[in-house]
């Protein structure tokens, strides 16, 4: 299973290396969202600073939608979905591979956004450890839930409009928990933040295990 996952994630990262879709499109989009938030709220740094955790994670969510769409559009062309099925790869491995690929993309986007909020919003890092583990856990949850819904909506005519409607309500707890953990992390009073990190970890675990079991029936259908 893990070997298959490595094969899939290697393939996705190689594709990204050659096409540069995330680097050239998703990352600039994420930075653009930050700038747009500033336009919408105020150039006043105080408001932006207060809202930084929420705006950061909203930008991550929007970018995640793009990354997930991209990850599953790759599989829908030229019968790749059938080819994946015929390849004999373990469906759970395919799921883990796709999720890991999305997670790597998201972590890269989060790094850029992190630089962005320090630069544009004047965010001040209080507890770096909490911020890093929050990013890791939230990204794992987003990638797992995103891969599940990505494959649910894959191949449908209406997938572009359907995916946000399906995914965003489910990842609402991730937004809440990651925002709260970031708030604690920026404030240096990170005691409250670890509880939110726990929630993120549980979310990631639940959706990873659902994905491992659900990908088999989802892949075998035509």
């Amino acid at each position: 299973m893990l070997h298959d996952a490595l094969l899939v994630v290697g393939k996705d990262l190689r594709l990204e290396w050659r096409s540069r879709v995330t680097t050239n499109q998703v990352m600039p989009f994420a930075v653009l969202v930050l700038v747009l938030f500033a336009f919408a709220l105020d150039p006043d740094r105080r408001i932006l600073q207060e809202a930084t955790p929420g705006l950061f994670w909203m930008a991550v969510l929007f970018s995640a939608l793009l990354a997930i769409q991209r990850a599953f559009v790759l599989e829908s062309h030229d019968g790749v979905r059938d080819a994946l099925r015929l390849s004999g790869l373990d469906p759970a491995g395919i799921f883990l591979g796709k999720a890991a690929g999305i997670a790597v993309h998201l972590l890269a986007v989060e790094l850029v956004l992190g630089v962005g909020v320090t630069l544009f919003y004047g965010a001040h890092v209080g507890g770096p450890l909490l911020l890093i583990v929050t990013c890791l856990a939230a990204t794992a949850g987003l990638a797992a839930a995103g891969s599940l819904y990505g494959v649910l909506a894959a191949g449908l005519r209406l997938r572009e409009t359907l995916l946000p409607l399906l995914l965003l309500p489910v990842v609402a707890p991730v937004l809440i928990a990651a925002t709260q953990a970031f708030q604690a992390g920026f404030r240096q009073a990170s005691g409250e933040g670890w509880r939110w990190f726990g929630l993120l970890a549980i979310f990631a675990l639940i959706y990873t295990s659902i994905g491992i079991f659900a990908f088999d029936p989802l892949m075998e259908e035509s």
Binding site: L152, V170, P173, I176, A177, Q180, F203, Y207, E221
Partner: peptide
């Protein structure tokens, strides 16, 4: 049927998580 069944289960699994997170929030 297959996709809807899985979507229903994922959605249902989310309800307690949402409740706890909003409660804490």
């Amino acid at each position: 049927a297959k996709r809807a069944a899985i979507a229903g289960l994922i959605g249902f699994a989310d309800v307690p998580i949402v409740h706890y997170s909003v409660d804490w929030w």
